[in-house]
Design a protein around this nucleic acid. Structure first.
Lengths: 349, 349
DNA sequence: AATATTTACGCAAACGATGTCGGGAATTAT
DNA sequence: ATAATTCCCGACATCGTTTGCGTAAATATT
């Protein structure tokens, strides 16, 4: 089964003109007489002619499409970011091709090669939590493929980056827990390799240090798959709960980790916030509807996507090599809800 | 800024061969001597040569990509379905291009034209809630563009369709409410135009009729934007709550309607399930974490995506026009939780 | 030795659209 | 009446790849 669109050749044949004349008529060239133009345009409209973008891509060496590589689209942060990207892309006449790594290094590499070979004009990248070898993206970038990193950036490549102030976000979230009376605060983070993990953990540590809170190296845990797998969150939680330094609050550093902690607590009947307070990074739309309503660090995903898309398009359309790079740092928002409310002091019996 | 990949021409030039020889060597043609083959293959590997898919598309008149048009990717049902689609597509060597209509007719039309002109080899379509004029998709289809509908189907085109047994799902969900002691059950549905709406409403009506429940035409309400806009849900709920035939339970027929009803009830302090029981279509991952835990009708989104992708690929690869169409009907799953638990009989004071 | 066959490669066309060049016809200038 | 200038339009090359056809040289057959 095949779909054959009408071409400029077909028009030329039926109208008894040459392809060049038709092409010029459609592009409203001054070299074509008004009558011929009218004839061509009318017929093209009638036949619903649309230029074949594949032929154009081949000729122009550009596809007017940008590739987006994220870990998973079924993740509210990324789907919101993609919405932002699309809103800009559409307006500027670009197509968006989406690829997922599912936090898998090999899938990421093949997705990157796929996008490059698919001739996207630029790539918006948020690396997988498994990636420590950046040679593929570096290779592409050094050969001239425009790349903009967002959220999870690649430090080894010098380009535009769009991130959230992860340090401050984690610092403030931790502070919020401290202010609400929690003493033994654990931090469950995404894979240690990720920049966002490092920044968030540092924010957490700084807040703890500033407030002179006792700090145990063991209260910082990492989930190599960013909580995508329930079991890794379960393991970490089991370990924390059973440790002698059992925490009374947790800050979770990714969407999936946050919800999986809630799932865990519900399953193991760990009461939130009474037995364990929780604040987590999340871009879910209805965290206030959860039980208990969830305190979150919310990233401006849509705006991040928009900004990243704008930057990649500037890069693509720049005549000369871009040398001056921008790192856009947006603030995250902390929304305080029941899951981290003021600690109730246990009344002496 | 431009990314220039190595071509067969470059290889031919450096190796002192013709492009045809290089092409044939890479495709392991018998016409090329083993030594030449080895030289070419080695050099191509070294230079990380990849055939330009755009040139191939132009020649082969196919792009090895399929277009997916849904209302919104930031909707768990669709993002799960897309995951299913991608899993099949990747395995069969197809690329997936995603487009969103945002429940807007004009955006849908331009997205369809975009996909067609982008030379996708086939389209997976779930129509927007606004669409009543199907001429664009009909036109494309009649010109030979393979189309498979999923979830929200277009009745006027005869092709493969993948749906859920909406009638039974709604019938069972309504029955579940009746069994749990609810008497005045309202049904809040997506746009009346959609097939899924009609089927679901019919299932609801049939269940009510079978159990001889009093039925009021006014207890069926529609949200033209599928609940994407909070206000439309708010309006409908206000109307229901204020009517003299105030319902004691609601069945919600889309993801967004369901969560927006919860949001409404939380805001207006309408206790679920005591004042109003709720069961809704939803593919959220953590409905059990909501407050109260939410009873849902869950569609097998991933499997629907998989099946739809398989069907479109069969259609694309079929040598002769496909005439025998399949309508795959999958069962939905009802998950009973607190939001629709057995009605408490008010104790007389 | 003369002819037939095989081997190994190059040439050129094609996919759809655009842009450069060039040229014939009509009009205007000399 | 001739030269110059417009005006309109067609031929051709190009983008990267594949493929049918042609062919020189090498080998095989008689």
């Amino acid at each position: 089964m095949k779909f054959e669109a009408i071409t400029i050749k077909d028009i030329a044949k039926t109208l008894g003109l040459s392809t060049s004349t038709v092409s010029r008529a459609l592009r409203d060239s001054y070299e074509i007489s008004p009558e011929t133009k009218a004839r061509v345009i009318e017929y093209a409209r009638e036949m619903n002619y649309r230029p074949n973008p594949i032929a154009l891509s081949l000729k122009e060496k550009r596809s007017s499409s940008i590739g987006v590589l994220v870990s998973e689209i079924a993740n509210s942060f990324f789907s919101q970011a993609i919405n932002g990207i699309e809103s800009v892309a559409q307006q500027k006449g670009y197509n968006v091709v989406i690829a997922q790594s599912k936090e898998d290094f090999n899938r990421e590499v093949s997705a990157l090669q796929y996008l490059a070979s698919r001739s996207v004009d630029g790539i918006l990248l948020s690396v997988s939590s498994e990636t420590s070898d950046f040679s593929t993206i570096n290779g592409l970038y050094s050969k001239g493929m425009p790349v903009v990193c967002f959220d999870r950036v690649v430090e080894s490549i010098e380009t535009h980056k769009v991130i959230v102030d992860n340090f401050m976000a984690a610092y403030n979230a931790t502070n919020h827990l401290i202010k609400n009376g929690y003493k033994k605060i654990a931090c469950i983070s995404n894979a240690a390799l990720l920049t966002i993990s490092r920044e968030r953990v540092e924010g957490y540590k700084k807040a703890m240090a500033d407030k002179k809170m006792p700090f145990d190296e063991k209260s910082v845990c990492y989930c190599p798959h960013g909580g995508l797998i329930y079991e890794e969150v379960e393991d970490v939680m089991n370990q924390l709960i059973k440790s002698k330094n059992k925490p009374d609050a947790v800050i979770a550093c990714s969407d999936k980790i946050t919800t999986n902690i809630m799932r865990y607590c519900k399953q193991k009947k760990v009461l939130i916030p009474d037995k364990l307070a929780l604040i987590g990074f999340s871009n879910l739309d209805f965290t206030e509807l959860l039980s208990p309503s969830l305190s979150v660090v919310r990233q401006p995903a849509f705006d991040m996507g928009k900004k990243a898309a704008e930057l990649i398009i500037t890069m693509i359309e720049s005549k000369r090599p871009v040398l001056d790079f921008e790192t856009v740092i947006l603030p995250a928002e902390i929304m305080q809800r029941a899951s981290s409310e003021k600690k109730k002091i246990a009344k002496p019996l």
